[in-house]
Amino acid sequence: MKKVFTKYLFFIFFLPVLIFMIAYFFSTKTEGEVKTWGVNRTINFGIDINAILSNPIYTISSFYLSYAIYLVGYSVIFLMRRCTNFLYSALNLLIFIANYFLLVNDMLNKILIPISVMGIIIFILNIFKTTKKPTTVNKQPSTIQ
């Protein structure tokens, strides 16, 4: 079971992102463009994804929520004396910085919430890749046969 889970871990965590992208693709409309596809607005459930993505309350909340998750998570990892994967940590930092600068420049940017979600997913992958410090492993040969 562990082998199957780790083999398809990428798809498990990015399936919600894929569903979100498809829903966003069908919910957007541009002015002056005639589309031959879309969601029937008379029978939908009344959720306007475009309005949610461009609402500054949700974008700021997603940024602060991801910041709190990173702060608590990395603090727990530090207190447990574990080492994180360097590439995932650097990627997580870059995504956080990009999200911050996009939030400062334009709070109505529609990419802020997906970037926050992607950063949390990379953080979760980083948690799975944490290892014990190699300096704490006992390297003396065992005398017990």
Rank of each mutant, 00 (worst) to 15 (best):
T131W: 01
P114M: 09
N55K: 03
I43D: 00
L87V: 04
R41T: 08
S75W: 07
C83I: 15
L15G: 02
N55A: 11
L125Y: 04
E31A: 14
S116L: 02
I113A: 12
Y64S: 13
V72T: 03
V4Y: 12
I43A: 02
I12L: 14
P141F: 08
Q140R: 06
I127R: 10
I77V: 14
T36K: 09
I69H: 00
K129C: 09
T42S: 05
I12S: 09
F11T: 04
V137W: 11
G38H: 02
K132A: 13
I49Y: 12
F11M: 03
S62P: 03
P56R: 05
I97A: 12
P141G: 05
Y88Q: 01
S27T: 06
S75M: 12
Y70K: 11
A98M: 08
Q140W: 12
V76T: 02
K110P: 13
T36H: 12
F25P: 01
T36Y: 09
S116P: 00
A98T: 13
I121T: 06
K139G: 04
I95V: 14
T135H: 15
I115A: 10
A51N: 13
Y67N: 12
K29I: 09
V104L: 13
M118A: 15
F63C: 04
A98L: 12
A68P: 07
M118D: 02
R41M: 06
I69E: 07
L93A: 14
K110M: 15
Q140G: 00
S142H: 00
F11E: 03
I115D: 01
S54P: 05
F13P: 10
T28A: 04
Y74M: 07
L103M: 08
M107K: 14
N105Q: 11
K2E: 14
N105L: 08
L108Y: 15
K133T: 06
I19C: 08
P114C: 08
Y70R: 09
K3F: 14
K139V: 13
D106Q: 03
K110R: 14
N92I: 12
N85I: 00
F5N: 07
N126H: 01
N92D: 06
Y8E: 11
N50E: 14
I127H: 05
F78D: 00
I113F: 02
K7P: 08
P56N: 03
